[in-house]
């Protein structure tokens, strides 16, 4: 019942989020031949050294390798990291705070269902709504890349591994948002706190000297580039990086569950 109700609440956002992911992807792929022709000069205009490094890889003489690097940027580093994180924040803020704000929380808690089950049902529906479009969009890039004007091959396994890691990162943001939603009295408060954290993390990421402490280092080009190039497989990615993302997600979710069980109405 609760899962169905949650799906009703987020289905519109899920469709919009999926479309946005896809709409960002399609022109990016179609733009590739023009970008390739424009040459490396554009890259020197980029403001940060790490961005120029990424651009150099995208403009490498190996056409196939360059396209894979380009897709790592467009699909994951830019696409999911921006739209996925925004989706996690938008869908996650309402999980508990909206019920509290609309004074429906007590009615829901008065049903014969434990608070842990209520939170699990709500979280899992939103998690599925966030994760499934990531895989669908990533896989849709494979046939799109094969159209004659682009004419490149995207390996299914590499795309899937990168999408899996990126989905885990989005779940990390969702778990953090869920914790904020449990602790906040209104959706606006939730959005403010989680928004502040995300903006701070992005800001840190763009400061060369301290960017290594940004959470976005767990989901940037240095993660997806080697995966798409075929240099890092699933097990190495999982052990080096994904496991930490999952551990963080689990810790934040358990904190949210504990807070929800203890929180007053």
């Amino acid at each position: 019942m609760i899962a169905r109700k949650t799906w009703r609440e987020v289905r519109g956002m899920t469709v919009a989020y999926t479309l946005l992911l896809e709409l960002l992807l399609i022109p990016a792929i179609l733009l590739w031949p023009d970008l390739r022709r424009a040459g490396a000069g554009i890259g020197e205009l980029l403001p940060a050294e790490f961005l120029r490094n990424i651009f150099r890889q995208v403009m490498s003489p190996d056409d196939d390798g360059a396209f894979l690097a380009y897709m790592a940027v467009q699909l994951f580093f830019k696409g999911v990291n921006v739209v996925g994180v925004a989706g996690a924040v938008l869908m996650g803020t309402g999980l508990v705070a909206r019920e509290r704000e609309n004074q429906t929380l007590e009615f829901l808690l008065a049903r014969p269902v434990s608070r842990s089950r209520i939170l699990a049902a709500k979280f899992s529906v939103v998690a599925v709504c966030l994760v499934v479009p990531i895989f669908l969009t990533s896989w849709s890039a494979i046939p799109l890349s094969a159209i004659p004007s682009v004419d490149h091959e995207l390996p299914f396994d590499r795309v899937t591994v990168a999408a899996f890691h990126n989905a885990c990162f989005v779940l990390l943001v969702l778990a953090g948002t869920t914790l904020c939603s449990v602790l906040s009295r209104t959706q606006v408060h939730t959005a403010f706190w989680i928004g502040a954290v995300v903006v701070a993390q992005v800001a840190i990421y763009f400061i060369q000297e301290i960017r290594k402490v940004s959470l976005f280092r767990l989901s940037d080009f240095d993660v997806y580039g080697p995966v798409m190039a075929g240099n890092v497989g699933f097990s190495r990615l999982f052990m080096d990086s994904t496991v930490w993302v999952l551990a963080g997600t689990a810790a934040l979710y358990l904190a949210a569950d504990r807070a929800f069980r203890r929180t007053p109405l």
Binding site: K5, N102, Q103, T104, F107, A110, R111, V113
Partner: peptide, 30 residues
């Protein structure tokens, strides 16, 4: 909570649902 009917004093109902949908949701736990 399975055996007691409780009406909270400061409660609201889900505005996006129809009356029938709300009843189906609320009574669906029993």
């Amino acid at each position: 909570r399975r055996r007691v009917a409780y009406l909270p004093g400061e409660t609201s109902v889900y505005a996006g649902m129809t009356g029938t949908e709300f009843l189906r949701f609320a009574l669906g736990f029993y």
